[in-house]
Structures are given as C-alpha cells and as structure tokens.
Design a binder for these strands. Structure first.
Lengths: 164, 164
DNA sequence: TAAGATTGAACTCTCAATCTTA
DNA sequence: TAAGATTGAGAGTTCAATCTTA
C-alpha cells in the first residue's frame, strides 16, 4: 500500500477513504430492513450474537458488539419492548440479566441471517478468487496489527517518535 | 471467505464482526488529537480533503466524506469558527460556498497528515508483505463490488418507487 | 423549478455518575 | 468494595423541511 507513488499529502488514500466509505455505505451489513421490520445495525448484530451464542449477560453482549454497557442497556430494552428478547435476572446472582431470544426473536434473527448471507454471497460473488483470498489474509493481518496497537492493550498510542 | 466450514447461523463472521470492530476501534484513523487540538474523525477527513484537493463547495466535500450536506454544513461552521477554514460565497454563483483552508488550517492539516502517516506506517509495518498485498487487492475488489451495489449507483436496493 | 446551504427533530453512541446486588 | 445494569448529558449523524440564490 505504501511505497507506491504518493501524490497526496494525506496518507494512504486506499485505506483511509476506502474504509471510511465502506462502512459509511453500510454495504457490508445493510439492508437491515428485513421482512417489514426495521433494526439498527447494532440490533442486527445483537440478535445475531444471541442466535449464534445463545443466552448471555448484557456485559458480555457489549463486549461482543464493541459497545458500551449503557448502549446495550438501552438496546436490550428496545428489543425486549418489541418482544424479540427476554430479560430475566439470574436467580443465583441477581446482578446479571440473562438475555435470550424469544421464539419470535429467533424467527426474526433467522430471517435476517438468511438475508445477510444472501447479500454477502452476492457481494463476494463480484470479487475474483484472488480478491476474496486477499481480503481474508489482509483483514486478518490488519485485525492483528490493530489489536496489538489497541489502547486497551496498554500500548502508548500518542508516541510521536516515528513521525516523518 | 465463504465456502469454508460454517458453524454459525449468521453469515461471514470474519467480514461482519471484523469490519465492525476495526472501525469501532478507530485504529485506522486515530489518534485524532494532534498537537493539543482535538478534531473529530470527520474533521480530520475534511481538512485532509481540503489539503489534498484544494478549495471546494460543501456539497462536494459531503460527497468526498460520504456525509449529508447538513452534517457538512455544521462541520464547516465549526472549522470556520476555529479559524481553520474560510467560507466565502462564490461571486459568480452565490449559492455556493467556497471552502478553503486558512494558513493556520493548512498548518494543522499538515501536522495531522504527518501524524496519520506515521501511525499508518507503524500499523502496516506489523503486517507481512503478503498481508499488505492482500489488503490492497481485497479492498479494491470489495470497494468495486460495493460501488456496483450502492444506492446512488442506481441499483435496486429499496425500490424508490413504492418505498414511501 | 432547481440547487446549495441551513435548521429542527430524532436517533445511536459515549462518558460519567448512580443504583442495585453481592 | 466490586460488578452488572441504568440514567442523564452531550456529541455526531441522518432525515425532512425550509431558506436563499439562480
């Protein structure tokens, strides 16, 4: 990526604008209106995790989604209000909520999963095998590099030492 | 990516959660506190575009950033208030604002550019050559596939005819 | 009418403070 | 004290409606 001819002052057009646009467009997760019901991106992610992983606490869901516990608190309340998620205090430790898909919630989650899978199939079908392979390899590496560098990993994030 | 053994009901864990986490972590664009001044991600992008592309209208900036014109209106007002961007109505057509970095704005933008480049250098330095190559190839393909599928490209995403 | 820019309402999210249970 | 969950304030964004200029 770097090393090629650089015409712009800002770094790395491909990564920078590319990633931003990709996610802004929501192309990877949209559409999130499924079968007449509307869900936010985070709600789609949430029911997906509950479908795949089963019952869990709000704290655990927040970790999986990369959201604040306060956000998940409101998110879970919304899903409960719509009848897709049941929230029950854990008997042995009443600090915990146990989140679980209702029957209706499971139905919705499975519809979304099918929609999303079809969407991704179409999307990835437009890539060449080399591009699909490259994406898998490159994202894995990037994810690892970001994780090593993450704030919560204890790395100094604002070290200006290597500027230039 | 697809084609491998699928254990989860929701599609494509790698893409789905990976991308979401990547951007949540902000690892690609952070840090965006530079030399004592704070900028939002969108402000960083904005001064970057103005540095690279020169003067432009708010509409144009909104396109480049993938933001609504209303968002850019407030964003530009903020940058103007802080003395980094000059907004002048175009003489020949007073509907347009011409956005342009001030001298101070250019100084800030160049600092950010250096910070960001160093950050990306460190990040990409943690990837193997194969991963860097894969990322470039894969992202280019994904970007193309998303663009073909994008709403503004005229593809049937939500059938504008009856969506009211 | 059309196009660029602005405003107001609503939504998602974070952060800090607080409540509740252990 | 500690940990899970909730609440309130504030930021950034979108959408729809409006203002301004052509």
């Amino acid at each position: 990526l770097y090393g090629a001819t650089v015409t712009n002052t800002f770094p790395d057009d491909e990564l920078r604008r590319g990633f931003r646009q990709l996610v802004r467009m929501g192309g990877l997760l949209e559409p999130h209106d499924h079968a007449g019901v509307h869900l936010t991106l985070s709600e789609v992610m949430a029911v997906g995790e509950l479908l795949d992983q089963g019952a869990m606490s709000q704290q655990r869901l927040a970790e999986l989604l990369g959201l604040e516990k306060s956000t998940v608190s409101r998110l879970a309340a919304g899903l409960e209000r719509r009848g897709w998620v049941a929230r029950e205090r854990v008997a042995t430790n009443r600090r915990f909520y146990e989140l679980q898909l209702t029957e209706e919630g499971r139905r919705v989650a499975e519809l979304i999963a099918a929609d999303l899978r079809a969407h991704h199939d179409r999307l990835l079908g437009r890539l060449t095998p080399a591009e699909r392979h490259g994406l898998a390899v490159g994202l894995a590496g990037l994810s690892r590099a970001l994780h090593d560098h993450a704030p919560h990993a204890g790395v100094d994030r604002s070290d200006p030492g290597g500027a230039g």
